[in-house]
Design a protein around this nucleic acid. Structure first.
Lengths: 213, 213
DNA sequence: ATTAAATCGAGAAAGATTTATCGATTATAT
DNA sequence: ATATAATCGATAAATCTTTCTCGATTTAAT
């Protein structure tokens, strides 16, 4: 398992999980192989694009046959690092946090949420979707002692930077940021922003434009 | 109000709301103007990029002074169509749906959620964050009669396509899709996908790569 | 066995986005 | 008043991403 792993562009990284999900469905339906052409049709992409994306994961296809479904699933899993999951803490057990605690996508994406943290006494000590909710105060201590690598940030915007700082101090390497706040963290910390506001804005302005014409 | 509105690229459309949020903070702090250089520093972007983005909205700056905060906020609002909000229905009042019903970002982004729909009898008839929850059965009827333009999709993946079809039939023009499912809808329907899974996957694979080195 | 059709992989071309360059403008300091 | 430094706007260059082209490969049909 040498894992030379070519670097993929962000767009590629975003398409691969979609292919994965689609391939999973195919496997369940008993399909043993699939062509790039067909995957491309499903997602309205260019077949070459799909081929290039899959090539990065190390998958190889055969003319007239396509790609083996099971092998390709394994290639994607391995390329994306889903085969050895990283432990994560979630901070902010509000509605969004609770939604994410019940999100089955974590396990599938190589992320293993161990616990949630909040400062609301009503939530501390309870469990949400079987995950314990601890006092915010314990975050630093637990995260550093358990060598947690990923932090999921679902606190209100006002607290985001402060919590992020704490995560960094506690040794967390990557932050999945679901707040609308741009986080100021050291360069070596990986931050992925889920910009709900930005996405909504794209929708609303595209609609506004469509309605003008 | 001629609104010739130059078309913006998607990246631009995603950056503008960030600038907006930042400018809002500046306004609250009493700042009257800001340079592209400073905005760029805040978001680690190229100053020219920021200038181009703002230029699209019609904002003009002055050398040595920068952009007027209040005027620029107005330009962005107007460019993104936030000044005349579109009505929306949300379908799927689970945790994620509930989180979004309480999300103050909608109003700010030109989207006005009027109601939620669900098929769970325990939820039907209640309100969540002051929004009524109606029976799914009523979606088509209400959406078509009220000329709802935006649908927010937070149902489980398995129901996504079916609900999307119903939205389209009811005359909805734009779908904000928070399910991991790729929706097959007519070309003229605007779909914005919030790919939680994809975003998480980017995080986890970037972390996997960082840990390899 | 031969032909035809589908698909692959590699590389070139096109398109989109970001970054760099440069002259013009304007507040601030001398 | 003049010089200086910051910033703007426009254009050009560079980079990144997607799409196109084409020869090679492989199954299925004749």
């Amino acid at each position: 398992m040498d894992n030379l792993a070519l670097p993929a562009s962000k767009p590629t990284l975003k398409r691969l999980p979609k292919f994965y999900q689609y391939l999973t469905k195919l496997r369940a339906a008993g399909r043993s192989n699939i062509s790039c052409t067909e995957i491309a049709r499903e997602f309205r992409l260019d077949p070459t694009q799909v081929r290039k994306d899959l090539a990065i994961t190390g998958s190889v296809g055969r003319p007239r046959i396509g790609f083996d479904v099971v092998t390709t699933l394994k290639s994607i899993e391995s390329y994306l690092g889903w085969d050895n999951a990283n432990d994560a803490f979630l901070v902010g057990a509000g509605h969004l946090g609770a939604a994410l605690l019940g999100y089955e996508g974590f396990a599938q994406n190589g992320v293993n949420i161990l616990a949630a943290f909040d400062c609301d006494p009503a939530k501390i000590g309870t469990t949400i979707h079987d995950k314990p909710v601890y006092d915010m105060e314990k975050l630093f201590d637990l995260a550093s002692r358990m060598h947690i690598q990923i932090g999921v940030l679902t606190v209100p915007g006002g607290a985001a930077q402060e919590v992020a700082n704490m995560m960094v101090l506690a040794g967390i390497k990557a932050i999945w940021n679901l707040t609308p706040v741009w986080l100021d963290v050291p360069d070596e910390i990986i931050v992925e922003n889920v910009e709900l506001s930005a996405s909504l804005s794209v929708l609303s302005s595209r609609l506004a434009e469509a309605l003008r014409n």
